[in-house]
């Protein structure tokens, strides 16, 4: 504090700053430059500090303090879940999501989805790796025997490709995989909106690795693109059926149905690739549209708690 300012403020009242300015500062009504000037003056003037203490809204100060402490606690927490995949997701995918404009509250809802955890995605990667390995093994042995076995080698991958997104969607809402399932069920945001957001995120998170794995499958050809419609059709059919029967039963029923389709194609046509052919693509599109319409019509019947 300079001698000059001390002289100004030692005469019983502040000569530098008017009381109205201090009151306006306490209300947050000053322009930035004026507020900075008052702030710079306050340490040197006990009269202005006393006037500010009278003006300040203590309840608002307490609330602001509490909010700052909460923000600090949340930033120290890192993300809602630490030590699991969410750490990686929060670091890389979280930044990507933020760059894409995903609101923080939606990202927090997604990051506690069971089928978006590292353990689940690692399991998906393991299954895909097994399918690719099986395909390559069969192809190598067939070539060694001088025979063509590419379609047979693809059977496991063709079977699993649409089932993995289906399993992810089912797991996203299976109560036993969510420790706070009861809380989520009893909350107003537990309805269609949350379901759609999580289902879309899970399908995207699993479908992309499936498409990439299709590139690694020997003799896949256009398979990376051909898997998309059947995968979407299977998942959407299960979601639509969940508005009629119990969600788990719907997922299991549709999964068994898909296995039957692939098995039937393999037995009748000698190759499961038929399940991804031209007619199958058209059928998948039809199923996708029908399931979407059914879900839109019966979406209010989807309630994981009330119908339990």
């Amino acid at each position: 504090m300079t001698d000059a300012s001390r002289q100004i403020c030692d005469e019983g009242r502040c000569q530098a700053v008017a009381p109205e300015l201090v009151a306006a500062y306490s209300r947050g009504a000053l322009a930035q430059a004026a507020a900075w000037s008052v702030e710079a003056h306050l340490p040197a003037c006990r009269y202005c500090r006393a006037a500010l203490a009278v003006e300040v809204d203590r309840a608002r100060l307490e609330r602001n303090r509490a909010v700052l402490l909460t923000r600090l606690a949340l930033s120290q927490a890192g993300g809602p879940v630490t030590g699991t995949a969410a750490v990686l997701l929060t670091g890389l995918a979280g930044r990507l999501a933020a760059w894409c404009g995903v609101p923080p509250h939606i990202w927090r809802l997604l990051s506690v989805t069971p089928s978006l955890r590292r353990s689940w995605l690692a399991g998906v990667a393991l299954v895909l790796g097994t399918a690719i390995g099986t395909a390559r093994f069969v192809v190598v042995h067939a070539e060694a025997a001088g025979a063509t076995a590419r379609p047979a080698g693809l059977l496991l991958f063709l079977l699993l490709a649409p089932l993995l997104p289906l399993a992810g969607v089912a797991a996203a809402f299976y109560p036993r995989l969510d420790p706070a399932a009861d809380l989520a069920t009893a909350a107003p945001l537990s309805g269609i909106w949350l379901f759609c957001v999580r289902a879309v995120a899970v399908i995207a998170a699993v479908l992309v690795p499936v498409m990439l794995a299709a590139l690694a499958v020997p003799g896949g050809g256009w398979l990376p693109l051909l898997v998309v419609l059947p995968a979407l059709a299977v998942s959407t059919a299960a979601v639509a059926l969940a508005t009629v029967v119990r969600p788990l039963a719907a997922a299991i029923g549709v999964g068994v149905g898909w296995v039957g389709v692939v098995a039937g194609a393999s037995l009748t046509a000698g190759s499961a690739v038929i399940a991804y052919g031209g007619m199958a693509q058209a059928a998948s599109l039809g199923v996708l549209i029908a399931a979407g319409c059914l879900f839109a019509a019966r979406r209010r019947a989807l309630d994981f708690g009330w119908n339990r």
Binding site: L74, A77, P80, V81, P179, A180, A181, P188, S190
Partner: peptide
């Protein structure tokens, strides 16, 4: 009442607050 295994207190409350439409 279950908690995600590594949830911290404020983050858990933040999550529940979002479920209660406090966006």
């Amino acid at each position: 009442l279950g908690y995600h295994r590594h949830f911290k207190v404020a983050a858990f409350l933040d999550y529940v607050a979002i479920l209660k439409e406090i966006t």
